[in-house]
């Protein structure tokens, strides 16, 4: 069965890049959100298995989304994909429950390793 996947990034290019970095064998149904508020609306209304989450976004940023997921006890895997790659930020998102932290620009090989690691492919 196809995995419902949410790609949340304010940049259209970035959303496309994430999708293109995923292997063709990855069986998923994709939804997209342009900011944190949109993402939470989707997360609260339907089952999402995996979220690719950007950090710097208008309205509500990635940190805000992670906090809400934690608070609401929403059940989904989150992989943060960000240009802000300093160690302090990685630590922070991991503490908030993100599975992994991927640097932009996304390296497809690294992404596959992570997806395999968590049995998503």
């Amino acid at each position: 069965m196809a995995l419902p996947v949410l790609i949340c990034d304010d940049s259209l290019l970035a959303r496309k890049q994430v999708r293109k970095s995923l292997p063709e064998s990855f069986d998923a149904e994709f939804l997209t959100a342009g900011n944190g508020v949109e993402a939470l609306a989707i997360l609260r209304s339907q089952e999402i298995g995996l979220v690719f989450l950007d950090l710097t976004m208008p309205e509500l940023d990635g940190i805000g989304v992670l906090e809400a997921i934690k608070q609401d006890g929403l059940d989904c895997f989150v992989i943060v994909i960000s240009a802000d790659i300093q160690p302090e930020m990685q630590k922070r998102v991991t503490e908030l429950g993100a599975l992994a932290f991927i640097h932009k620009p996304v390296n497809p090989e690294k992404l596959v390793v992570i997806l395999k690691q968590y049995g998503l492919i």
Partner: peptide, 13 residues
Amino acid sequence: DCLQELINVAMGL
């Protein structure tokens, strides 16, 4: 949008 994204990533690096 494309330029903004490229710049964001470049600044992160």
